[in-house]
Design a protein around this nucleic acid. Structure first.
Lengths: 332, 332
DNA sequence: CAAATTTGCGCAAACGATTGTAAGTACGCC
DNA sequence: GGCGTACTTACAATCGTTTGCGCAAATTTG
């Protein structure tokens, strides 16, 4: 492995100086044509490749971007990651990926590890358990940070996210116009901004259509399966159980559907579901959620990557800003 | 951002030399107690962090590992990636992820990009369209390569994979003991080693139980949905259509099931499915494949990462080797 | 033909940290 | 008091590349 071929060797071989080799390889005009040719020929023959570690050191850049997200195995995030990869690859950057597993400590460790490894910037989709946000503040003194999807809204950070309030509003409005009245909301954890916005859209739509708001229809989940089962049972045990359940995630809907089936309810007949994530496998279900919201995670990731690259490459003119991606209602 | 605090500044501030600062921060015994204390105190106050780019340069290491796999969005690979991340993080390494999208050119570009970015080693799960393998040979002159799952078996490379032949054998044997005779195989593309092995296990099991091998029951797919639909229709159009179909992937089974349903067949009644990947959402199906093979992708990734780290950290004693992970038959 | 300009190339510093070697001081011992 | 031994710290080289500057030789100009 690695004979460690440097410019020095090429220079010695040809009896010229290292600086001449360097300039010849860059086609610098101050180097003569024959010398340039001679150097490039030998470099090609020896398969010379510049030492990226030395170049990174000199340029104070690594061309690596850190990405911190809750779970790689969640399709939503892996699609976002795909979008990020695509955008970065086009600009010569690679991505270093770490999972927070929705854990604050891990998120902290991931960010500091990325900084220690010398990434040029960081894309973050926050862990649901992140209540203390000061580590982002510390980190941003070192490298620019852009949030995507699970964002921290603050003028200091760039952020790319979907308009959850509107998505929830549209969804509820769709259900109302379909004739539904008893619509429950299986919402996410309180720590996520999206949870608040989803609830707002839900309430706004009910108000807009002059329907009563039943607080018992609104449940916040903590992302564990037990809690989902608990909360769906609470809904089904109500005097007037909901006809439609708005689940913030496909997997939540699936778990809830299981409970319904066990209780003898027929999905899309006795009770229907709509969701907030459009995962590919749902189309294979016999009774899929009747509607869903496409949030374009790939686009989210891609835009966030673009924003971060701007922060890295034009730091003088860059102003952190927020980009909103319009979600789209999909009726099955 | 970045005031670029270096040892030089600390040294100047305290009127000592840079080397003293360096050694004081390492608690080197040659530096006096007060000096060490003084340096560390100031470093703490100024939030000094060593410049990782300079250290990477000096150590000729980046503590970054490249990972090239077909698709991030395939749950199987994202689980493997999770396993890789976990193992690497424990050893102070981060991972740089790239997708080949099963395309040879992209795989090539990914590997050379990783090398240019200075990763210390590369984990690869090969693209299905990779017929020419010479780029791996070129790359391994620069950094060690370890394959996982979709491996290239060659003494030069480490490799971690599942025993597909045994898995297929066990699966077919299970079906035979359940009384099935007409078992078809929807296999992967020819370019993948696993395809050959799966076919071998399938044939071995039939032979072992003295059953005839019907070549019409064996179909190789090219991973496009159209091809899957075409091949499943060919199977169903046979004079004696199969009772059970062994699909090499859950998504293939799902697409095939769709076709069956459209043709009025009842899943798990008129025709059954078994698969070779145990994706989480299948448990939510009303009629899931009756059996599947758990291949432990996380374990695969984790072991591959361990092997690669060995190649990187003990290059003198490292000998490339193959690690086989025993798959497990799961009956639903 | 001398002066001015261009052309071609090497020297050396720089990036930030590590580390072998040297050099200085203080101490104890005979 | 001189010398060996600790002890403490500084100097300088090094990793591989880039780049400003300077110095020759070649060429053009008046």
């Amino acid at each position: 492995m690695h004979a460690s071929l440097t410019m020095k060797k090429i220079a010695k071989e040809l009896g010229v100086s290292v600086s001449t080799v360097s300039r010849a390889l860059q086609n610098h005009p101050r180097i003569g044509a024959q010398t340039t040719e001679k150097v490039q020929k030998l470099a090609r023959e020896l398969h010379y490749e510049p030492n990226s570690r030395a170049i990174n050191f000199k340029n104070k850049k690594s061309y690596n971007i850190g990405v911190v997200l809750p779970y790689l195995t969640e399709q939503y995030f892996s699609i976002a990651l795909s979008g990020i990869e695509e955008t970065l690859a086009g600009k010569g950057y690679n991505m270093v990926v770490m999972q927070s597993r929705n854990d604050y400590e891990r998120e902290l460790a991931a960010i500091s590890s990325l900084i220690r490894h010398g990434v040029d910037g960081i894309l973050v989709s926050m862990a649901s358990e992140t209540y203390n946000k000061s580590h982002f503040n510390d980190a941003t003194h070192k490298v620019p940070i852009v949030f995507f999807d699970r964002v921290l809204k603050h003028p200091k950070y760039g952020a790319v996210y979907g308009d959850i309030t509107k998505a929830a509003f549209d969804m509820v409005q769709f259900l109302i116009t379909k004739g539904h009245q008893n619509i429950a909301l299986l919402n996410g954890p309180n720590s996520l901004q999206a949870t608040t916005e989803r609830e707002k859209g839900y309430i706004d739509a009910l108000r807009y259509h002059s329907l009563a708001i039943n607080q018992q229809y609104i449940k916040n989940l903590n992302l564990t399966k037990e809690d989902t089962i608990l909360k769906i049972n609470e809904l089904l045990n109500l005097a007037t159980p909901p006809e439609v359940i708005l689940a913030f995630h496909d997997y939540i809907a699936l778990d809830a559907m299981e409970v319904c089936k066990q209780r003898g309810l027929k999905i899309n007949q006795d009770i229907s579901f709509v969701t907030f994530s459009n995962l590919s496998f749902c189309s294979y279900l016999d009774n899929p959620p009747i509607a869903t919201v496409e949030q374009f995670p790939g686009e989210l990731g891609s835009q966030a990557a673009r924003l971060l690259l701007e922060a890295i490459e034009q730091p003088e003119t860059y102003v952190p800003r927020e980009i909103v991606i319009e979600p789209k209602l999909i009726v099955r």
